[in-house]
Amino acid sequence: MKDKSVKKYILKLVGQEIFKEVKCMASDKVNSILQSTNANDLKCFSWNSLLTELTQFAPLMSSVLVSATKTRAPRSNTKAVIGMCAAIILKHRNPRMNIVQKINSLILYAGHSSKQVYQRLNPLNLTVSHVSMIRVLAKVGLGYDARVKEWRDSLLATITDEDELTTQQAPWSKSTEDGAADSDDCSTDSDDSWKQFPPMTSDEEDQPSEDHDSADDTGDEDLNDSGHLGTCSRSTEEESSG
């Protein structure tokens, strides 16, 4: 590789081979995870699956990226760096290979990022546009409240059944109503019974009743028989005669 003329041709051949690999991987012939539009793939995405595809369909590009990110001390984010570099390159080749960019956009949305952030990062193939992010968000959130709706429907069904049971007439309600009606009739008769007697006139109210007079006479006789009032009556007669 010290010969610059030979190195030049080798690098040209390596570039052509990488171009073929990227073109093949970005085509529809390869069912790449980067082209997936499934919400489950967004949730279950891993860098290992992407690196496996790179090793299988783009081995030369993968080896170049691995060599470029090699360090003396191993780092935990090496796979993520290689996968991100490959995702940027492949999205530049085919805009539909953007699952990594969708994930980045959702992370930014969770952080309440503004539209200007998407406008600046989208041209760098780091994210999708703000409009695309909204579509992805709607697709990911589709059916997220299905369990809540099922729970709501079960509650509504229970409430409806209880209302039907409440509105249905109980077998004993009719007899209870009849009994109440009879009691009302009795109370009415007892309350209005006094109306069958004619009202008293003023003369009848002033005239004393015979029962009261007889009771007074009987009381006088009883007192005379006792002898106490008799003594008072004799003394009264003697004074009047004197």
Results as ranks from 00 to 15, higher is better:
Met97Cys: 14
Ala86Gly: 04
Ile103Ala: 10
Asn98Lys: 01
Ala87Glu: 02
Leu90Gly: 02
Ile88Glu: 03
Ile99Tyr: 00
Ile103Asp: 01
Ile107Tyr: 09
Cys85Arg: 07
Pro95Lys: 04
Ile89Leu: 15
Ile99Trp: 00
Leu108Gly: 05
Ala110Trp: 06
Gln101Gly: 06
Ala80Met: 03
Lys79Thr: 08
Gly111Ser: 14
Leu90Phe: 13
Leu90His: 03
Ser105Gly: 08
Ala86Pro: 02
Arg96Gly: 09
Leu108Asn: 02
Arg93Ala: 15
Gln101Asp: 05
His92Ala: 13
Ala80Phe: 05
Gly83Phe: 02
Lys91Tyr: 05
Ala86Leu: 06
Tyr109Lys: 11
Leu108Ile: 11
Asn104Gly: 08
Ile107His: 12
Gly83Val: 01
Val100Glu: 01
Arg96Ser: 11
Met97Ile: 14
Ala110Ile: 14
Met97Ser: 05
Pro95His: 10
Asn104Asp: 13
Val81Cys: 13
Tyr109Asp: 11
Lys102Arg: 09
Val81His: 09
Gln101Glu: 06
Gln101Trp: 02
Leu106Ala: 05
Met84Gly: 08
Asn94Tyr: 05
Asn104Val: 10
Gly83Lys: 01
Pro95Ala: 08
Arg93Glu: 14
Tyr109Met: 15
Val81Ser: 09
Leu90Met: 10
Lys91Ser: 08
Ile103Lys: 03
Cys85Ser: 12
Ala86His: 02
Lys102Gln: 07
Ile89Tyr: 12
Arg96Asp: 10
Ala110Phe: 12
Lys79Tyr: 14
His92Pro: 04
Ile99Gln: 01
Gly83Met: 03
Ile107Asp: 13
Val100Asn: 02
Arg96Gln: 11
Met84Trp: 12
His92Ser: 14
Ala110Ser: 10
Val81Leu: 15
Ile99Leu: 09
Pro95Ser: 12
Ile89Lys: 08
Ala110Thr: 11
Met84Val: 15
Arg93Trp: 12
Asn98Asp: 09
Leu90Ser: 06
Ile89Glu: 09
Arg96Lys: 15
Ile103Cys: 08
Ala80Glu: 04
Arg93Cys: 14
Ser105Trp: 00
Leu90Asp: 00
Lys79Arg: 13
Gly83Ser: 11
Ile82Phe: 07
Val81Thr: 09
Cys85Gly: 08
Arg93Val: 11
Ala86Val: 04
Ile89Cys: 11
Asn98Phe: 00
Val100Gly: 03
Ile82Gly: 01
Leu108Met: 11
Ile82Tyr: 03
Ser105Ala: 10
Asn98Gly: 04
Arg93Ser: 13
Gly111Ile: 10
Ala87Tyr: 00
Met84Glu: 07
His92Ile: 10
Val100Phe: 04
Asn94Pro: 08
Cys85His: 12
Val81Tyr: 10
Arg96Cys: 05
Asn94Glu: 08
Ile82Pro: 01
Lys102Val: 08
Ile88Met: 10
Val81Ala: 14
Ile107Gln: 14
Ile88Trp: 04
Cys85Ala: 15
Ile82Cys: 02
Tyr109Gly: 13
Gly111Tyr: 06
Met97Pro: 04
Ile88Ser: 09
Gln101Thr: 09
Arg93Phe: 14
Met84Pro: 05
Tyr109Trp: 13
Ser105Asn: 04
Met97Trp: 03
Ala87His: 00
